[in-house]
């Protein structure tokens, strides 16, 4: 950081890996936070010029417009396959597949499991906010029991549509992933832990260690019908008991 004047210096700056642009995300949405954490990690590890972000279909479909490095669209659920193709051609690239809960655990479950099972040397960031944001608040595979959504107006009934799927636990049955951790951004302390996990995931990739999976319990105040702070509390009080935070694997 360059010294601005004799008396003042930068102690905080926008990451170079982040474009200076107003996002389209709602107030209190977790995507912006995670985007910034990723950009900070990319800067800190000095890999901006090698990084490729693979965008999902969902609210973060435009993530490549916010990242100041190469970006690639993927069709809904296929980010792990696109990331596989990118990484296999240029193994020196740093490839991050950024996926939502519908993308990763509904329409793209097959791709997610098989990329993890092959131990592709990529990093997956999985945003779990228990709802489909972009399409207007429908049930996600991770929607909580009894949670009201646009397509579960009487609350999610596990006897009808199954229980919410736990992504980390599912992938933890596979041999090849090297890092699996569930984090959250509901408060500052956990946000820092999330950054640490993302950093570990990218580091693993730089070192050629294999597949890393970071699940982030995130917020969707708009579709949950809550204020930002209520949404953060709901993550802590409702989601965390079902989706326990912590590291599942760190090989």
């Amino acid at each position: 950081m360059e010294t601005k004047t004799k008396d003042f210096k930068y102690v905080y700056d926008k990451p170079e890996a982040l474009v200076d642009k107003v996002t389209h995300y709602c107030p209190g949405c977790g995507h912006g936070i995670v985007h910034k954490l990723l950009a900070e990690v990319i800067d800190e590890l000095g890999v901006r010029e090698k990084a490729i972000i693979v965008a999902p279909v969902g609210c973060s479909v435009l993530i490549y417009d916010y990242m100041n490095f190469d970006g690639c669209e993927a069709s809904h659920g296929r980010a792990p396959a696109v990331a596989t193709g990118l990484k296999r051609v240029n193994p020196d690239s740093i490839v991050v597949a950024y996926q939502g809960d519908g993308d990763l655990l509904a329409i793209g479950t097959g791709e997610a499991i098989h990329a993890a099972n092959r131990g592709e040397n990529i990093t997956t960031i999985f945003i779990n906010n228990a709802i489909y944001g972009m399409t207007g608040g429908q049930m996600a595979p991770t929607t909580m029991e009894k949670q009201i959504t646009a397509t579960t107006p009487y609350g999610r009934d596990p006897m009808d549509v199954g229980f919410p799927i736990r992504g980390c636990e599912l992938l933890n049955t596979l041999e090849r992933p090297v890092f699996i951790e569930r984090c959250s951004i509901y408060d500052f302390k956990n946000t820092l832990k999330t950054k640490k996990a993302i950093k570990k995931g990218i580091k693993n990739q730089i070192e050629g260690r294999g597949y890393s999976f970071i699940e982030v319990l995130s917020t969707c105040p708009t579709n949950w019908g809550m204020k930002p702070q209520e949404a953060a509390n709901w993550v802590k009080d409702t989601m965390v008991p079902y989706y326990p935070l912590g590291n599942f694997r760190d090989n």
Partner: peptide, 13 residues
């Protein structure tokens, strides 16, 4: 589905 999207990724690279 995965195959054609791997093709997409490899081509993009």
């Amino acid at each position: 589905l995965a195959a054609i999207n791997m093709v997409y990724g490899a081509s993009a690279a």
